[in-house]
Simulated assay, not measured.
Amino acid sequence: MTHRIIILHGYSSKNRGDGLLVEESVSLIREALGEDTRITLLASDPDSFAHLPVDRYCSRPGRSGWDRGYLRELRHLNSYDLVVGVGGGYLRAGTVTETLKTALVHVPQLGAAALSRTPAVYLPQSIGPLRGGTRLVYTPLLRRLTTLMLRDDRSVTELSLPDAVRTPDLAITSPEFTDRFASDAADGTGEAESVLTVRAVHGAVPPLVTTLAEALAAADVPVTGYIQSSVGGNSDSDAQRSVTPGPLLDEDAYLRKNSHHADPRRVVVAVRLHAALLALRAGHRVIHLSYERKGFSAFADLGLEEWVHNVNDFDPALVVDQVRTLRESVEEQHRYDGLVRDRVPYLVDQHDLAVNSLRDAVISDAAVERTAQ
């Protein structure tokens, strides 16, 4: 039997982190339900996912309103075997702009999933902040989901939903991460340039990030940049070039896509969470300057609490020292790798939990339908 699955809340693969979460969701669904599973994706930039074997519809409203195909799919969620909410941090209402964007793009999808008879599994989320009374809108809808996975401790505490499951970000539970990172032997990175990859936070590069770039240069640490997102108002291009104006590392080198890991392992300092997690998946050693709740929980899941800092309140001298130590000390490289390797069994278990959650939701729903007949 070929299952029909719909994925909600996609964004754009031009933001490499959001693209990764959609790709991981598709892979997870096929692992759980079979390679012949037919998948439909609702995304703000559906054309950017043309590389995936899925049907696609645009969820972003235009001047004339929403795409008709998108509205049709939302009205017919009951025709699917399973609704899947992609992982991420899109359910938020911290500012007026966030609240409006979420109301236009994501609330219709969440509402349709919650009110549908089809089981709905939302993969690891960060939800919030929910200000201005929006919690009263979100919470009843979230309670109706079959399974809600939360990827950070603050979301768990603030929502206080009894059936929510605390699970790590999909980027670090996938077999690509657990197989690839754990198998990399510790090696020197002192000769390779380190990477500082940044984004604007609340409209500007945080001042301490600029100070860090200057401190790395003063310490004679060679640094290059990498642009993780190049999509519309979410592009990092201007912010990155203001900090690292020279040549940038391309995606293949950053992700070590050359054959047999020909590109060296590097020390990466990343502001975006998925710039950090993608670098870790590639085998780099990463220091994360987090601007949201999700970063601290993700690095705790990896056993790397020592290398995550608040982007608005950190000691640049300490981070420079961490970069130099990870570049030059084989002992420190072994320690870093060992901490992550110790977490691999837990991450594998969490991956299996996600696979089973998807499979069980479909099987249980099918059993209910047979009983009803």
Rank of each mutant, 00 (worst) to 15 (best):
V83N: 01
R92S: 11
L142E: 02
P140M: 09
E98R: 04
R143G: 02
V107M: 13
T157V: 14
T99R: 13
T102E: 08
P124T: 09
Y80H: 11
E73A: 10
G87N: 04
V96D: 06
L141H: 06
E158F: 01
A120N: 04
T147D: 12
S59L: 06
V84I: 15
E98G: 14
R144F: 04
V96M: 12
R72E: 15
T139I: 11
R117Q: 15
K101G: 12
A112N: 04
T139S: 09
L159W: 01
A112L: 08
V107L: 15
R75P: 00
R56A: 10
L159N: 00
L142W: 02
L104D: 10
T146Q: 07
M149I: 02
K101A: 14
Y70A: 08
L104Q: 13
V105K: 04
H106W: 13
V83I: 15
R63Y: 06
P124S: 09
T118F: 04
W66V: 08
L123E: 03
G88S: 10
Y57P: 00
R151V: 03
D152H: 05
A93H: 05
S64K: 13
L159I: 09
Q125A: 09
R60I: 04
L91E: 01
W66C: 06
L145H: 02
V137K: 01
I127D: 00
R63A: 14
L136Q: 12
D152P: 02
V107K: 01
L148V: 08
L141P: 01
V86T: 10
S64M: 13
G87P: 01
E98L: 06
D81W: 02
L148I: 10
S155N: 04
K101M: 12
C58A: 15
S64Y: 07
T102P: 00
D67R: 10
R144E: 05
R154E: 12
L82I: 09
R60H: 13
Y70N: 05
A112K: 02
S64N: 14
G62I: 09
Q109Y: 08
L82H: 03
H106F: 15
L91V: 13
A120P: 01
A120I: 08
G94M: 09
N78Q: 12
R131C: 07
L145T: 06
R75L: 15
G111H: 11
R143F: 03
R154S: 05
L150P: 00
R135Q: 09
T146N: 10
N78K: 13
R75S: 15
G65I: 11
L104T: 08
P140S: 11
K101Y: 12
L150C: 06
T147C: 10
I127C: 02
G133V: 10
A112I: 08
V83M: 04
L77A: 09
D67P: 03
G94H: 07
L77S: 06
L77W: 06
Y122K: 01
Y90A: 03
N78P: 02
A113T: 07
S160N: 15
R72L: 11
L150I: 14
P61A: 11
A114Q: 04
L159R: 01
V105S: 02
L123A: 07
L150S: 03
